[in-house]
C-alpha cells in the first residue's frame, strides 16, 4: 500500500501518521510537501494530517485547500483513491467541499485534549471493515474547532445514506449531550463521501495504534485500509 502524507505549512501530525504507516504497519510512505503535485495513480492512500495549516488564523483548513498539492488530492479523489482527513485534515476536506458541512469552534470555546468513546456506525467502508457496526471504541481527540455543523437536509441525507461513520458516545454506547465533547450536530465525529473513498474524522487513530500508548483501537482503522487495498482475506485483528 503506497501512502502519502501531505505536509501543509503548520501540519503537526504528519510525522505521527507517517510513523504509524511506515513503522507500525510497515508500508511504504512518503511526505508530499504542499507545494508539490503528484499523479492520481501515485498513491493508494492519501492522508491529510492534523495540525494548524496556515495557523488556522482564518477558518481551520480555509487556506490549505488552495495548496498546489490539493489539486492532486482532488484528482486522486476523482480517480477513487482512498483519502483520510484527520482533525485539521477533516477540516480541510470540508473546506475543499470533498465532504459536506462545516466546523465551528467547540461550544465551550476551549481546546479539548482527552479520550472519547465512539460508536462505529458503518463497518462497510474501506476504513472501518475491521470494526463491527455498533462497536464502542476509544480514541483521543485534540482540537479547538471540532464542532461539526450541517443543515438538517444534509444530516438527513448523511444518515439515510449511512455516511455517518463515527458518533461520540459514552462508555456504554449512549449517544448523549454529556458524551458530546464539542457540540457537533447529532454527536457526529466522522463522515464519509457518497463514493465511499473519502473519510473525515476529528479523533486521532494514529495516536492510538500502539500498545505502549495504552490503546490500539485506532490501529484497526489503518489495518482496514490496508486490507481493503491489498484485498487480503485473512488479515488478523
Amino acid at each position: 500500500m503506497k501512502c502519502a502524507v501531505i505536509m501543509f505549512p503548520g501540519s503537526n501530525c504528519d510525522i505521527d501518521c507517517y510513523h504509524v504507516l511506515s513503522e507500525v504497519l510497515g508500508q511504504p510512505a512518503e511526505y508530499v510537501f504542499h507545494k508539490e503535485k503528484f499523479g492520481p495513480g501515485d498513491f493508494d492512500l492519501i492522508v491529510l494530517p492534523g495540525g494548524f495549516s496556515y495557523g488556522d488564523y482564518l477558518r481551520a483548513g480555509a487556506i490549505a485547500r488552495f495548496s498546489p498539492a490539493m489539486d492532486s488530492v482532488l484528482k486522486a479523489a476523482e480517480a477513487g483513491k482512498l483519502i483520510i482527513g484527520i482533525c485539521n485534515g477533516f477540516q480541510i476536506l470540508l473546506e475543499a467541499k470533498l465532504l459536506p458541512g462545516a466546523m465551528k469552534r467547540n461550544r465551550d470555546l476551549k481546546f479539548h485534549c482527552h479520550d472519547v468513546y465512539l460508536r462505529v456506525d458503518n463497518d462497510e467502508t474501506p476504513f472501518t471493515r475491521l470494526y463491527k457496526k455498533g462497536e464502542i471504541i476509544r480514541l483521543p481527540i485534540a482540537h479547538g474547532e471540532g464542532n461539526y455543523y450541517a443543515d438538517v437536509q444534509t444530516i438527513e441525507k448523511l444518515k439515510a445514506e449511512n455516511r455517518v461513520v463515527f458518533t461520540y458516545c459514552d462508555r456504554d454506547g449512549n449517544v448523549s449531550d454529556a458524551a458530546n465533547p464539542n457540540g457537533s450536530v447529532e454527536n457526529i465525529a466522522g463522515i464519509i463521501n457518497e463514493q465511499g473513498n473519502i473519510l473525515g474524522m476529528m479523533p486521532h487513530p494514529e495516536r492510538s495504534s500502539e500498545e505502549i500508548l495504552g490503546n490500539t483501537d485506532g490501529k484497526r482503522l489503518f489495518e482496514s485500509i490496508l486490507r481493503h487495498i491489498e484485498g487480503r482475506t485473512t488479515y488478523g485483528r
Binding site: 510525522i15 505521527d16 504509524v20 481546546f111 479539548h112 485534549c113 485534540a142 486521532h204 500502539e210
Partner: peptide, 14 residues
C-alpha cells in the same frame, strides 16, 4: 488546565 493542552501529539507521551 491540561486538557486544554495537546499532550498526545507526537505519540510519545506514555
Amino acid at each position: 488546565v491540561y486538557q486544554q493542552y495537546d499532550y498526545t501529539v507526537r505519540t510519545d507521551t506514555v
